[in-house]
């Protein structure tokens, strides 16, 4: 890493953090919605005989196993 061309480190990093935080949050929310659109279409409109109780049971089973990891992994 060269150090001879140092500009304004705090301001550069602050801009970088601001841009990536804003863009990261926005793209993540869009990705979240897009990723759920397919499964939601299947269970709501594809007429596959899916019941709400089956969805809840399956989600509860996944949550029971992964709930702690959902919280811990993003932090670590």
């Amino acid at each position: 890493m060269s150090t001879s061309t140092l500009g304004n480190p705090p301001r550069s990093m602050a801009q970088f953090t601001a841009t990536t935080t804003r863009a990261g949050r926005l793209t993540m929310i869009i990705g979240l919605m897009v990723s759920l659109s397919g499964p939601l279409y299947l269970v709501l409109f594809a007429d596959l005989g899916v019941t709400a109780s089956a969805l809840l049971t399956a989600f509860a089973a996944v949550a029971g196993t992964f709930f702690i990891i959902w919280l811990v992994e993003p932090v670590t």
């Binding site: 993540m28 759920l36 499964p39 899916v50 969805l55 989600f59 993003p74």
Partner: peptide, 19 residues
């Protein structure tokens, strides 16, 4: 459809926790 939905909803929780 049920398995795919539960998997995706679980993945969404992961992203939600991150957000």
């Amino acid at each position: 459809a049920v398995a795919f939905f539960a998997m995706s909803a679980g993945g969404a929780m992961w992203m939600l926790a991150t957000l």
